[in-house]
Design a protein around this nucleic acid. Sequence first.
DNA 1: TAGATTGTTAATCGATTAACAATC
DNA 2: TAGATTGTTAATCGATTAACAATC
Lengths: 212, 212
Amino acid sequence: MDGNKNSVIRLLKYKTILLRFRILGFKRVFSENLADAAGFNSTQVRKDFSLFGISGYRRGGYQIDELLCKLNSILGKDVLQKAVIVGAGHIGTALMKYKSFESEGIQITAAFDVDPEKINREGNIPVYPFDELKDFVRNNNIKIGILAVTEVFAQEVFDTMVSAGIKGVLNFAPFKLKGSSETFINNVDLLGELEKVIYFVKSAESRLKGSK
Amino acid sequence: MDGNKNSVIRLLKYKTILLRFRILGFKRVFSENLADAAGFNSTQVRKDFSLFGISGYRRGGYQIDELLCKLNSILGKDVLQKAVIVGAGHIGTALMKYKSFESEGIQITAAFDVDPEKINREGNIPVYPFDELKDFVRNNNIKIGILAVTEVFAQEVFDTMVSAGIKGVLNFAPFKLKGSSETFINNVDLLGELEKVIYFVKSAESRLKGSK
DNA sequence: TAGATTGTTAATCGATTAACAATC
DNA sequence: TAGATTGTTAATCGATTAACAATC
């Protein structure tokens, strides 16, 4: 029904590309154009559309406006999305200031931290004590949370978030959170991603040396 | 030969877990223990080891010290890894201060930016003008780079990094970099990851509403 | 019509998991 | 020995890609 996880990310990418195409004055695209811009192949593009019931015009490609309209209704980006950040450390703070969120209609409404020094109620994006998380999330009906605390507190903080009503978490702590199937967890492991790069560079190096 | 991409990440995770187990005084583990701690299943663990030629003792599990030794030699984490960050914006700065890198033997030796205001040659991790990137990377024989500039400059900056000798890039710009097969590129799309969370929360919501 | 492009079915590829034989 | 755990082969699952019929 809703395709697979990866296709959603690709759909989001198509949307970004289409917006750019439209600015350039294009009225329609072919799957081939989209594929080129996104770095996939055209079958992938058509398959993704097919999965979500999006259709174009045989020989005529896709009307950009029509396609954007359909993508928006699928991705639900018409409404402003509110999210909170828990943990106002380096990563948390960087994400508070991350421009791309805002420009894509995602509003970071507040951040939370246990450290009294981090509290700043008057900021552009206010930082409140962690104690206030539960009430804030409930009162503002927030569903999305970004978890940027250290590993040690991750599970505890996560449980609090869930009990307050958070339904989806982007987790930066290098820890496998235990949650029910009702909460969607997406893990970003920055250290792991960097270590992957290091590993592949090293293994390429040693392959080279080995073949000498 | 070197397994698949995901298995490397898992290997890194096993290592972290083993170090923790060792601190707790354990001498050996079973694949089941590792799987529990990592959130995989025990077949996955054994398969990963098998892929890299790591063997244990039937009925006896794995000697932690021996296993760590093998993992270290495969992952090559014995040597200190040096890396540079290009782009001292919010994300770049957060990564400069990211503790987990250091504790895993990854040293961020310098950052680079075009903005004169960001330059700080005396910092704990110095920030140099972008112009000096090429010489620095060459002189210090750096192979790993973190790309944290805006989309618009991403390709240009990437090309400079590669021509300076960078062999692996962790890319935070939401842009499909074009590079040769000699350079390993790992993309981290923070906006995309958050949008994925939003999408799945929304679709779960509408499923609930639909079934009411 | 002829040609181009979509939309879908089938084939392929890769990764995970199940099953189980080997063996300590 | 009996029981437990590894290590590997085969089955499964899911996602991508190729092939091609439909059709504008």
